[in-house]
């Protein structure tokens, strides 16, 4: 279908070898990047670099600090021990680092998604000491010594968690961006004892928004796992 639609679009004529504007590489002025030391990070990925550059750029736009503030120099890094999916990590972090960014940018666990980054969507739902929270509003330094479970920790190797399998069976997603948070909450809703009726499941899943509107499939998946009693 999509191919047919595209085939009706007029051909764009470009001189030989010239790429259309939207495919041309972005050329920016070369400048020395800030030296970024991130112990605990396996490598400085492009994603990490973009995140850091954006943060620095935003900091420069801040209004002048009040007189009594002498400096906004980067704060001292703090040591944090975090057990994630059973494995303990010793991290050195800027205190501003959210648990969500720690998981995604420092530990490479990108299954937990960053969407609203303000506690409004639930895509970043993880468990801290077994309790579901929004990782975007958690400062990692405040969870020193605690245990975190992410979507990557739910499956047993290649064997999917029953909730993951049910989401596939019931089409509990479309674009997939909210899905890991939905699955984390789905497991919690049953464990918390809030999966009695459809209305109760909907209410206790309401902290996880799905922009694609896959709520019917999500509800069916939670009910199936509840009824299977696993």
């Amino acid at each position: 279908m999509a191919k047919n639609v595209l085939s009706r679009l007029p051909e764009i004529q470009l001189p030989d070898g010239q790429l259309p504007e939207w495919e041309q590489p972005v050329v920016t002025e070369k400048s020395e990047p800030e030296p970024v030391v991130r112990p605990g990070s396996p490598d400085l990925s492009r994603r990490t670099f973009v995140a850091v550059s954006t943060a620095l750029g935003a900091a420069m736009l801040l209004p002048a600090a009040p007189a009594q503030v002498t400096t906004d120099a980067p704060p001292e890094l703090v040591s944090v021990a975090l057990k994630v999916n059973g494995k303990t990590h010793a991290l050195k972090l800027d205190p501003r680092t959210s648990l969500l960014d720690t998981l995604r940018e420092h530990l490479g666990l990108t299954g937990t998604k960053k969407t609203c980054n303000q506690g409004a969507c639930g895509a970043c739902t993880v468990y801290v000491d077994g309790v579901r929270i929004n990782a975007c509003l958690a400062l990692t330094v405040m969870h020193d010594g605690q245990s975190v479970t992410t979507i990557e920790g739910l499956a047993q190797g290649d064997a999917l968690h029953p909730m993951q399998a049910s989401f596939i069976v019931h089409d509990g997603f479309q674009c997939g961006y909210c899905t890991s948070g939905q699955i984390m909450s789905g497991v919690s809703v049953i464990k918390e004892g809030h999966a009695g009726s459809d209305a109760e499941i909907r209410e206790w899943m309401s902290g996880n928004l799905c922009r694609c509107g896959c709520y019917v499939g999500i509800l069916a998946a939670v009910k199936e796992v509840r009824d299977a009693g696993v």
């Binding site: 506690g119 739902t125 579901r132 929004n134 509003l137 919690s188 809030h194 309401s206 902290g207 996880n208």
Partner: peptide, 8 residues
Amino acid sequence: ASPQLRNK
């Protein structure tokens, strides 16, 4: 709020 926020 939401269950996640109420937990925190």
